[in-house]
């Protein structure tokens, strides 16, 4: 009897180190029929298996329009992710998915898009950004606010030049701390580029920042007006708490703000009970919710 909880095998084709503790893995299905059948929405996740160690829910971080492969960006924080980090190209993992409800790419067409990401929270948003840039005629302007702990903790730095080159895209970067710069020293920091942060080597050319402080210190620079803007947000809960509060103050409505949540998950199918927040299963009903959907949940979300 074939069961939903049994993973398929996928092969690692490439590994890129993003930061000290974070890497991006590229995958393909050895089975051509599975490869053809696999499709996903940005913001969805897979359950990745290292056999003998366990499973972990990990966001898809590539753009679904790329059909030759898909990617996961993974931070080494627990048993499963540590075991995954030891694997090399040619190695195999178990995978089941894609699961969950991703970003509302259809509903937000015709709107300006404000992306607010913190740390590895940029991973599930990279695919959404890719989809928007692939069909810019369907969306308005795109502003990406990304906060990392330090310039060395920024992920996807190789994407920044491409995003910036787009006429309707603004990318604004903050870091919680940078060598020799005091928090709040925004103007000074803005003047510094890769040279100040992580040297001038070409691979790190993307590492720069506009402000020092949490991602919300970038809010005064935002040009998009609340009226016709959808917000896509993912990051640590404390970041999202302050970011949502400030956006509401600025006049954004809860319905316009989409957040991606993280919870412990075992099944990913809305059965095992681990990810419940009140009556809501984060795995199946989310992980992407409009803030209006989760604001009044009994358990504090963030």
């Amino acid at each position: 009897m074939r069961i939903l909880l049994q993973p398929e095998l996928v092969e690692i084709t490439e590994v890129r180190q993003e930061t000290r503790d974070t890497f991006t893995m590229r995958f393909r299905f050895p089975s051509p029929s599975l490869a053809a059948a696999f499709g996903f929405q940005p913001g969805q996740f897979n359950m990745l298996t290292v056999f003998g160690v366990g499973e972990a829910p990990i966001s898809l971080s590539s753009c679904p329009r790329q059909q030759e492969y898909f990617e996961h960006t993974i931070r080494t924080v627990g048993n499963v992710t540590r075991a995954i980090s030891r694997l090399q190209p040619g190695g195999r993992l178990g995978l089941r998915g894609p699961y969950g409800r991703g970003w509302p790419m259809e509903e937000i067409k015709g709107h300006d898009i404000l992306v607010v990401a913190g740390g590895i929270g940029l991973a599930p948003l990279r695919g959404a950004i890719g989809c928007i840039l692939a069909e810019p005629e369907n969306y308005g302007r795109l502003e990406i606010l990304y906060g990392a702990r330090s310039p060395e903790d920024q992920i996807f730095t190789y994407e920044y030049a491409g995003w910036r080159a787009h006429p309707r895209v603004a990318l604004r970067l903050s870091v919680d701390r940078a060598p020799g710069i005091h928090p709040g020293a925004g103007e000074d920091a803005a003047a510094r580029t890769g040279a100040a942060a992580a040297g001038t080597d070409p691979p790190d050319a993307g590492r720069r920042f506009d402000r020092v402080g949490p991602v919300t210190t970038l809010f005064p620079d935002v040009e998009l007006e609340p009226a016709n803007t959808a917000v896509l947000m993912c990051g640590p809960e404390v970041m999202m708490r302050f970011a949502v509060a400030q956006l509401l103050e600025r006049g954004f409505r809860a319905e316009q703000i989409y957040v991606s949540l993280e919870r412990r998950m075992e099944c990913g199918l809305g059965k095992c009970g681990h990810c419940l927040i009140g009556p809501v299963y984060v795995c199946k009903d989310g992980p992407v919710f409009s803030y209006a959907e989760i604001r009044d949940l009994p358990e504090e979300v963030f």
């Binding site: 909880l5 499973e55 099944c267 059965k271 009970g273």
Partner: peptide, 8 residues
């Protein structure tokens, strides 16, 4: 009660 874990 129906909550379950999955383990190896």
């Amino acid at each position: 009660c129906h909550c379950f874990d999955i383990a190896d």
